[in-house]
Simulated assay, not measured.
Amino acid sequence: MARVSQEHLDARRRQIIDGAARCFARDGFHGTSMQGVLKEVGLSAGAVYRYFSGKEELIEAIADEAFTSIRRAFREAADTTPPPAPDVLLGRVLRGLFSGEVCGLDGRQFASLIVQVWSETMRNESLAATFDDGYGAMRVVWTDVVEGYRKAGVMRADVPADHVARTMMAVAQGFFAQMALFGDAEPEVLENGLRGLMAMQLPSAG
């Protein structure tokens, strides 16, 4: 029997993950069955179960890939000296994530998947652990970005870096929620909104 190459195995795994991600984004985790995934990817049950034991394992694999992609995008920004301003940084990362970079999903599909992952962590301990790891890693990356701003002399140093990092993460999370729920939150909306907030000039006290 001819040996199956690693490239073929990787391509098949990619095919399954991308197809399952489309199903989950369209029909939700609980509205998607393994039969639906099999139909979406056009493979037999044996071919799919060779890679994944079931839907739960597929969900975890997709969640891990999404978190890895987000973390990598922000890490690349953190390694720039100085890092891009928050409006530029978030806009750049979101455009990449919404361009089919993760599982071939468009912006609203990707945002829908992320919001579903958040919800699923409430009942799935294994997925919750994956999410906790991803969130913790993101806090480290964003804290590094904040430290980069400080080294460049563009951010005050009297607020804990982790607090700034978590606030910026909350902005991104809120954007994902808006995109998933309403579908009209394009990256330039976030860029313009942040730019306006960053340009505020508050009157001096007294």
Rank of each mutant, 00 (worst) to 15 (best):
L190E: 01
I70R: 10
P84G: 04
G96W: 00
G54E: 10
R71G: 08
R108D: 00
E40W: 05
G174I: 03
S69R: 09
D106Q: 06
A25Y: 00
Y149D: 01
A77V: 12
T167S: 14
F29I: 05
R3A: 03
A20I: 06
M122C: 13
R22A: 10
G148F: 06
Q109P: 03
D64P: 04
G36I: 01
G107I: 03
L105P: 00
G206Q: 10
M155E: 04
G91W: 00
G206R: 09
F110M: 07
P86W: 00
V115M: 13
R22S: 06
Q178C: 15
A73Y: 08
Q109Y: 04
F98N: 00
D64T: 11
M1L: 14
E101N: 11
A66T: 11
R150C: 11
G193C: 15
E191C: 13
V154E: 02
S112G: 12
G36H: 01
V189K: 04
D106F: 02
F74A: 02
A11V: 05
A2E: 06
G91V: 02
M200Y: 12
P160T: 02
L181F: 09
A185D: 00
A128R: 14
E186I: 03
G148M: 11
P86C: 05
D87S: 12
G193V: 09
P86E: 01
Q116G: 07
K39R: 15
R50T: 07
V102N: 02
Q15T: 14
E120I: 07
F74W: 07
F131L: 07
V4S: 10
Q201E: 15
F176M: 10
D144K: 09
D162Y: 11
E65F: 11
H30C: 10
V115E: 12
A78I: 05
G104M: 02
M169C: 12
L38I: 09
V102I: 15
E60D: 12
V88K: 07
A152E: 03
F131E: 04
S112P: 04
F24C: 01
L181R: 09
R72S: 10
G107F: 01
S33A: 05
I17Q: 00
P187Y: 06
G183S: 08
E188G: 06
R95F: 05
E188M: 13
V171K: 01
I114S: 04
T167L: 09
M1S: 13
S33D: 05
M200F: 13
M1Y: 11
F98S: 00
P84L: 05
A111L: 05
V159N: 07
H8Y: 14
D87F: 05
V115C: 12
M200C: 12
W142E: 08
Q35N: 15
I59C: 10
R26L: 13
P86D: 01
Y49V: 06
A45W: 11
E188L: 12
N192L: 10
K39P: 08
M169I: 15
R123Y: 07
M34P: 02
S99M: 02
E65S: 14
N124I: 03
Y135H: 15
A2R: 09
Q116E: 12
E7I: 14
E188V: 12
S33I: 01
G19A: 03
F52N: 02
